[in-house]
């Protein structure tokens, strides 16, 4: 837990994602992708932790973190990178502040990505301007994207046109969304509300709405429990981490005061779902352990003073 390696990048990174392993039993992934924002020329870059022949003294398996990651590829991106998600081992979807989503594919045998296709103008305001696409979620071969215009759009990898557009998902900007089941998505917005939708139904009427607090602080991120789809965690603009149980009608949430700054991303560990990670604007990354049924922060540790944006 105490090992980490630092590499200075010189651009503001908005999202960072590990490339998924080829199969479950394979070696740990060594590649990750980063996206930048708020710059004149934004880019998506690939990094690798390269092998170096260092053997540690007591013969332990050397941790990957001993090595500094190296940038192996970079490609430019129009607009800020708002979100990135890996669809499968080879393909990655990138959401941009110009309202478009692009699909990037890793080229075999080289460390590079090429743009396979781009869906433009997915998000537009009612009166025409393009809205930033703020979040992505993937499930199997589908990609769902949410934007500041309050729309959610469903895309399939092979098709050029969107599968489905849910127009009136939200009156406010959607900050994050996630797939609950194959046919259900859950969104959080700037008004502090958590909503679930059934995509099979044609209407955009939400099935359920939950509100966190009365002060309507925006909810910034959402993630669902890998095993139990009715448990969902959200992080808010005021640093509060909330765990929801969607089955219960009343008192369905547990609030925990966590960070001093907005929580930008929250993630459950895919294999050990009792462990939860949150990262926030105050520069810290917290690891939560829920095994004892009382959620205590196990080890908050500080990364550098620079703001961290994602786990």
């Amino acid at each position: 837990m105490d090992e980490y390696s630092v590499r200075f990048v010189a651009k503001k990174i908005s999202k960072i994602r590990w490339r998924p392993k080829l199969d479950q039993k394979g070696p740990q992934s060594r590649t990750f992708a980063t996206g930048t924002w708020d710059d004149q020329n934004n880019s998506v870059a690939l990094w690798q932790i390269l092998d170096r022949p260092i053997t540690s003294e007591n013969g332990d398996a050397e941790s990957l973190l001993v090595h500094e990651p190296q940038k192996v590829f970079e490609t430019s991106h129009s607009g800020d990178v708002m979100d990135m998600q890996y669809v499968n081992h080879d393909m990655m979807a990138v959401a941009s502040s110009t309202g478009s989503v692009s699909l990037l594919k890793h080229r075999p045998n080289t460390e590079a990505v090429t743009t396979v296709c781009t869906w433009d103008k997915l998000h537009q305001f009612k009166l025409g301007g393009s809205a930033p696409c703020t979040c992505l979620a993937t499930r199997d071969e589908w990609i769902a994207s949410g934007g500041e215009d309050g729309k959610a759009v469903l895309l399939a990898i092979e098709q050029r046109t969107p599968l489905q557009t849910l127009d009136k998902v939200d009156s406010c900007a959607i900050n994050d969304l996630s797939f609950l089941k194959q046919s259900e998505i859950i969104t959080v917005n700037s008004f502090g509300q958590l909503k679930t939708f059934d995509i099979r139904q044609d209407t955009s009427k939400e099935s359920q709405i939950f509100s966190v607090t009365e002060t309507h602080t925006p909810l910034l991120c959402v993630d669902r429990h890998p095993g139990q789809p009715h448990i969902v965690a959200t992080g808010g603009d005021d640093g509060m981490l909330t765990i929801w149980d969607l089955r219960q009608e009343k008192f369905h949430m547990t609030l925990m005061e966590a960070h001093t700054g907005p929580i930008w991303e929250v993630k459950f560990h895919p294999l050990y779902p009792n462990h939860l990670f949150t990262c926030s604007d105050d520069g810290s990354l917290w690891h939560w352990d829920c095994t004892a049924c009382a959620s205590d922060p196990v080890q908050p540790f500080m990364s550098s003073k620079g703001k961290s944006y994602s786990t």
Binding site: G79, D80, S97, T98, G99, F125, L127, G128, G129, S130, A131, P132
Partner: peptide, 12 residues
């Protein structure tokens, strides 16, 4: 009047 483009800052 509710403009086409300029509102979103950088978007086209």
């Amino acid at each position: 009047l509710s403009s086409e483009a300029s509102m979103t800052g950088r978007g086209g």
